[in-house]
Design a protein around this nucleic acid. Structure first.
Lengths: 337, 337
DNA sequence: TATGAAATAGAAAACGATTACTATATACAA
DNA sequence: TTGTATATAGTAATCGTTTTCTATTTCATA
């Protein structure tokens, strides 16, 4: 039809009513004569009117925009969570913006500042650092927040995540029960709750079974595939005395680990056993299926959306949720005697 | 600081100038006395002013929002493209909204209508149907569009994609060169350009080598893992006469294929050879590494962003781009004599 | 010294919706 | 008949910017 956008003013002029009346017909929040209403609706149909949400948002001080901020939105783990949130919120008229921080606190701050300017209605975030928080601005502006995967020290913010300590403990215990004693760990970023808690779970399991943790077998992988690969490669090239098993603290690092081991012709599980916190994409088709903890990302996403919607609609904070994970046994662990 | 947002009016009052002047300082598009400028900037700093982008957008009729609409944003292929676009556009002050249509034309229409209401600045789309187009509204409103992966019949819209015909031809020829004659094909959605062209490439290769295409060996997988799995399972359960090779027309369907074959204890490549249009996540770690065409998604994403930015900034349509793919040889094809 | 251009800045009108006021007409109860 | 509640609808303010006018001052040039 028209190149120019049809506005309420056009509808008002066309039907001979005021824009107020048009607005009332549209929002159905005020009595309007049935005949008038019909006339207006007909005009809306005929002129093909579509509301300008930007104007609406300015007036109502909302944006119908929600953002999810994670380290790397390409990680299938976050992709799946984000998709679920998106599906859920789309029904409620929200759009989801996905943002990656690449684990940089500064980039996180920049993103949040931009989102605040856009009058973002809500934020889902896995913070880059559990301590130094970029969330104060959001909290001041009373923007609803839901923490996903990673917590901050501020416990008043609703959170959806995994029992990192427990699951890491279990993974380690599984290795111990298979007879392993010389166990290494590939840690995530230790300034995140997940990184810290998983390492603690590992250490606690070792301690409870009276096993010593060799400090040189604590590898720092920063939750990153490349970093994990390099850290491990360096170790393998300069050490002949290997641990018999390794706990990797996330899916990306597990990939890096496998690649590093493959390159050095070290076989899983013959030469070294591997367990992973977090599943890998298509892992059921791998030559070596890694024994792992798999998180129910779709359920997590749904819960995140619920916690966010509760705040968005009823200004009501629901309680945090710890989602149960599944233990998946592959063929990456050898019985050791 | 304040709970309420600081606006230009506050800055104006604080410094004793008009909002017009504040705006001019901020946008640096009009001469302002150096002292006044300093004063204003100081006030902005002190009061911690952040512009309200919603208001700005209303006035300027833009949103700094760009959307990518694909069938399924969980598909790593699209994830990777989207991430690249996002990175690129973020630098320019745009945010990316990701939308999945689940291959539904109606959902696509709904999404586009919503995005138009939000005054979306640009759209990247892999249309659900190459014929019946939901793009007319966007074109009328002169919203910049870039087609990615899939084309429409309207050739005036910039496009970034793969040479589907050629690559499908090559994949098929590869099988033929390995001695295969009884070759099946698992097609994508035939109302998309990619679905159609890949099938045509397959057929042309068969024809050029004088091979007959058995109609019952053309499986319709709709680009969907589950659909492909079911289609193939049904066939396998009721047929003992198998083709010696199969061409799968996308990564998701290849996964479905492998699962169906695994379930029936049909081995790749011993019992049947497989080639795939599109790579699978972590495929280098598979027991059977599928021989495939891998698309350079990062390069594609970058090109898409460039084509979009050219329209966004200079109102200039650049030429469509066909991105070269890589042939990756796995161990999923058996030599046949 | 006159004059036109450039520098400088405020008032007010947009952008397109919502909503607080205000006003009238109608219906119903007392 | 009067009073009051409700239905109905327009006017104008508002959300927070940008930008068009309009107006003054300053300055270089003829």
């Amino acid at each position: 039809m028209d190149l120019k956008n049809v506005t309420m003013k056009d509808i008002a002029k066309y039907t001979g009513v005021s824009t107020a009346t048009v607005s009332r017909v549209l929002n159905d929040n005020y009595p309007v004569n049935i005949e008038t209403k019909k006339k207006v609706l007909k005009a809306i149909e005929e002129l093909n009117y579509e509301p300008n949400l930007v104007a609406k948002n300015l007036r109502s001080r909302k944006s119908n925009l929600v953002a999810i901020i994670v380290a790397d939105i390409k990680n299938p783990y976050y992709v799946s969570i984000a998709k679920e949130i998106d599906d859920f919120l789309f029904e409620e008229g929200y759009n989801l913006i996905t943002c990656s921080t690449d684990e940089s606190l500064e980039k996180e701050a920049t993103i949040i500042r931009l989102l605040l300017s856009k009058h973002i209605d809500g934020i889902v975030i896995a913070p880059s650092d559990s301590g130094k928080s970029n969330l104060t601005g959001l909290i001041e502006q009373q923007v609803p927040i839901v923490l996903v995967d990673r917590k901050t020290n501020d416990l008043s913010i609703p959170f959806v995540g995994t029992s990192n300590f427990k699951e890491a403990y279990n993974l380690t215990e599984y290795l111990i029960n298979k007879g392993h004693e010389k166990i290494a760990v590939l840690t995530g970023k230790l300034n995140t709750s997940t990184g810290k808690e998983r390492l603690e779970g590992f250490k606690m399991a070792m301690a409870n079974y009276g096993l010593v943790v060799d400090e040189t077998w604590i590898f720092n992988g920063d939750f990153d595939e490349k970093q994990a690969y390099e850290e491990l490669s360096r170790f393998l090239k300069s050490n002949k005395d290997l641990p018999t098993a390794l706990v990797s603290c996330n899916n990306l690092m597990t990939k890096g680990t496998i690649l590093a081991l493959n390159e050095e012709n070290i076989n899983i599980p013959e030469d070294i056993s591997i367990v992973s916190f977090g599943a890998m994409e298509n892992q059921e088709l791998f030559t070596t299926r890694i024994t792992c903890i798999e998180q129910d990302t779709r359920f997590m996403g749904r819960k995140v959306a619920e916690l966010l919607l509760a705040q968005l609609k009823n200004k009501q904070k629901l309680k945090s949720i710890i989602v149960e994970s599944t233990f998946i046994e592959g063929n990456s662990v050898k019985e050791w005697n």
